[in-house]
Design a protein around this nucleic acid. Structure first.
Length: 582
RNA sequence: UGCCGGAUCGUCUAAUUGGUAGGACAACAGACUCUGAAUCUGUGUGUCGGGGUUCAAGUCCCUGUCCGGCAACCA
């Protein structure tokens, strides 16, 4: 066997080396420029330490991948480190399951936090001490206004807020109240700790933000040890500080929180990282918010978080995406503060580019159409040699069985073809890749439906291997499989989950679900595959020639392979069809 | 009516910080081709508007317009 690249697991590693960020020296985005500036002035002693800080309340998606790549690549590029930190300050929404999946996803993407795995909950004691310090300084107070009242006192975007009647409690009373909050003496919602800043600030985040709330819920790590939990603003920056983060990179919606971030670091007199905001990733034909993804899962519009139509990392992984493709995508789209929407084809193209280079090719008729080669002896078969990967000579060759009855792709035959169709049609000759030229002599139709159920052909023995020695040309080369040797598999074709380019643009009163694409999944239970692929294991990726890149799904069972279409090949013919408005 | 941020080809993104507006993707055309793939070649009236400074402005100043975010005891 000359095959050197047979089906094997495609989830992993040997060839999937980490592609480091471009190191052409020049900063490639505004964040790198800011860091270079800090390094020049010695602001952090030339140190660069970033972190990826997910909340374990959902699965990671492609937007997180952008952040992960950014943070880890920055650390690599500047010779620093990047931590993984779970921002687990809200016990009611967080779960161990997410902690597990997030770590798996970050690792799969190719990044390593080494021994620097942190949890905000690791710092609950320190955070509490910070709160006490603030109270002692007269910069925080316990309020027992209701949530509604606090909200009402906050004012509006256009009017200043009003101070709480409890704002001027004594330090002693505040200390006492805070201690009793911690001890669990009060019910949820009755008391909060608030910073004392400025109820008239034009930045609403500075209107005495809540620092701690009472939540008598079990935390996935600290159990019932705590009944008060810090809010994001009071946890995030201080955790950054405690971990020695230098550059705290987050998305644009936290821009207005930076003033608070800075205020805490100053008042607490602790190491003060620089918060830098960038625009989150948006893609056409997709939604990205965790809330909406959760909705898709909970309402069963998809089959779970790792449904291959989901742009979660686990969904993309199952779909057949490679870490390399995702990384190069993230690199390609850049980092700015501009609220942009990336065309989905950019993502798809990143996968094509990666897989074209290294995916072995196979033949598969996913919508098989029977072809009988009339002048090929019944019961006879032979083997033809096929190239495993024309982009990679080292991938070698394999043999494919050829015989009298074959399957071709239904789309490759038309009884009455339009002008630009140059595949098989009555009277026309085409090449069966690596095998022979065949000429269509007729069709057999279903007498009731009129549907073509069989194509009749003759082959030219002189064209063996696919070459016509007489210099004869054909306009098309088709993929095919031998019917008696083929294996049957299920193939799942995926299309955009949403049919609208911007699914969230909906008329008043409707929501993004109206834009769900009813044809996002098409299951073809009777695809015919060449036998060489029979042993493929889940995760194995390959190209089905002329169709696209596919991978073996985890739903596969012995004797029953299931393939996911990861992405189609580019297809000029379908473009012509669309343009000529078929 | 407030605060913060943003605006460069269709889309994303560069521009040595005041000195030839470039790349990628898309699109189109062609070459090549045993994948209508890949590859190669070619194709662009793009700096939000109006003023100003300057020999020179995407970059600086003034002014306007449009877009996004912000009023959880979520992150």
């Amino acid at each position: 066997m000359t095959t050197s690249n047979g089906p094997e697991r495609g989830d992993g590693s040997p060839s999937e080396e980490n592609t480091d960020p471009k190191s052409d020296g020049r900063p490639s985005n505004f964040i790198e420029r800011l860091i270079e500036e800090d390094n020049k002035t010695g602001r952090f002693g030339g140190k660069v330490h970033t972190r990826f800080p997910p909340e374990p309340n959902g699965y990671l998606h492609i937007g997180h991948a952008k952040s992960i790549c950014l943070n880890f690549a920055l650390a690599i590029k500047f010779g620093g480190k990047c931590n993984l930190r779970f921002d687990d300050t809200n016990p009611t929404t967080e779960d161990e399951e997410y902690v597990r999946s997030i770590q798996e996803d970050v690792r799969w993407l190719g990044f390593d936090w080494e021994d620097r795995l942190f949890y905000a909950s690791d710092f609950f004691e320190e955070l509490y001490a910070f709160a006490v310090k603030l109270v002692r300084k007269g910069k925080a107070y316990v309020d027992n206004l209701s949530a509604d009242d606090i909200s009402r006192h906050r004012g509006s975007l256009y009017e200043p807020g009003r101070e709480s009647p409890h704002r001027e409690r004594s330090v002693e009373e505040n200390l006492d109240l805070l201690a009793r909050m911690r001890k669990g003496e009060f019910d949820e919602g009755t008391h909060v700790l608030r910073a004392k800043i400025d109820m008239a600030s034009p930045n609403l985040n500075l209107r005495d933000p809540v620092l701690y709330r009472i939540r008598k819920a079990a935390h996935h790590r600290t159990g019932t040890r705590w009944v008060i939990y810090p809010l994001y603003d009071f946890a995030h920056g201080q955790c950054d500080s405690l971990e020695g983060i230098t550059h705290s990179i987050c998305t644009l919606e936290f821009e207005n929180h930076r003033a608070l971030y800075d205020w805490f670091c100053q008042e607490l007199e602790i190491h003060h990282p620089q918060q830098i905001e960038f625009a989150r990733l948006n893609l056409t034909y997709a939604v990205m918010s965790k809330r909406k993804l959760l909705r898709l899962v909970k309402d069963s519009h998809v089959h779970g978080w790792n449904d291959p139509r989901m742009l979660t990392i686990s969904g993309l992984r199952r779909r057949g995406y490679t870490p390399e493709a995702l990384r190069s995508f993230c690199d390609e789209i850049g980092v700015t503060k501009f609220n942009s929407v990336i065309d989905m084809v950019v993502l798809e193209n990143a996968l094509r580019t990666d897989l074209n280079r290294r995916a072995p090719r196979f033949m598969a008729a996913v919508r098989p159409l029977k072809v009988v080669v009339e002048n090929y002896p019944e019961g006879q078969s032979e083997e033809v040699e096929a190239i495993n990967n024309p982009e990679d000579p080292a991938a070698g060759m394999r043999k494919m069985p050829f015989s009298r009855v074959l399957y071709i792709e239904r789309d490759d035959f038309m009884e009455d073809p339009p002008k630009k169709f140059f595949r098989l049609a009555p009277g026309r000759e085409v090449r069966l890749r690596y095998a022979y030229f065949v000429k269509c002599t007729g069709v057999v139709k279903d007498p009731t439906t009129g549907e073509v159920v069989e194509v009749r052909c003759t082959y030219d023995p002189a064209t063996k291997g696919g070459d016509a020695r007489d210099g004869r040309k054909v306009k098309a080369t088709l993929h095919w499989v031998s019917a008696s040797h083929a294996i049957t598999a299920e193939v799942r074709l995926y299309n955009h989950l949403f049919s609208a380019e911007h699914p969230e643009d909906v008329p008043e009163g409707q929501d993004f679900l109206v834009n769900l694409n009813p044809n996002s999944l098409e299951v073809l239970p009777n695809a015919k595959l060449e036998p060489a692929i029979a042993g493929a294991a889940p995760g194995f990726r390959c190209q089905f020639e002329r169709l696209g890149y596919f991978c073996v799904d985890t739903d596969s069972r012995p004797g029953r392979l299931v393939f996911n279409r990861s992405v189609t090949l580019k297809d000029d013919w379908s473009k012509i069809q669309k343009r000529d408005g078929a």
